[in-house]
């Protein structure tokens, strides 16, 4: 069975560190890497009628923005690295969705970054790493 690593990437420097570390490990282990980018989404949030009407359009825009602004530059960077890299963009609860991707791909490890910095987003991202450590179906490496 092919050795697959999942690296969570949100476009931040800490996400990048996780991807880079996953690549280094993958090289040694002759593994391939799936870069997972999850857009936070709850099917139980509340929307106004106007938002409901535009949701499908917005979803398309959000996905293409994630592809062009977050994933494409990273993939370009990693193209020459000698490791086979693919990407997944999904909507959902971040930690749970990363676990789902890992299960679907038959991954043997998950890599995720964390920062101890105080911005709100990074605090949230930090808690994602914490949740992932609790619920990951395979060994999970948290990259500082």
């Amino acid at each position: 069975m092919a050795n697959i690593f999942v690296a969570a990437y949100d476009g931040s420097p800490s996400g990048r560190r996780a991807v880079d570390y996953a690549i280094t490990q993958a090289k040694a282990a002759k593994a391939s890497v799936v870069v997972a980018h999850v857009l936070e989404w709850s099917p139980y949030s509340f929307l106004t009628p106007q938002e409901i009407e535009e949701r499908h359009k917005r979803r398309g825009q959000e996905l293409s923005r994630a592809e062009t602004a977050v994933i494409a530059p990273l993939m370009k960077d990693l193209a020459e690295g000698g490791v086979s890299v693919s990407s997944e963009i999904k909507y959902g609860h971040v930690a749970e969705t990363i676990c789902e991707i890992a299960t679907q791909k038959g991954a043997s490890q998950i890599f995720i970054g964390r920062t101890g910095q105080s911005t709100v987003v990074e605090r949230l991202f930090g808690s994602v790493a914490g949740t992932l450590a609790q619920i990951a179906p395979v060994p999970c490496t948290i990259v500082p």
């Binding site: 989404w41 099917p43 949030s45 929307l47 106004t48 009628p49 409901i52 979803r59 959902g92």
Partner: peptide
């Protein structure tokens, strides 16, 4: 509850959201 919702459609308006919005009206 979303038992019959395709996970690949996540990010679209869910049944719950449509119901909640109609209810708030």
């Amino acid at each position: 509850k979303g038992d019959y919702s395709d996970p690949n459609d996540a990010g679209e308006v869910s049944h719950f959201q449509a119901l909640a919005t109609a209810l708030s009206g």
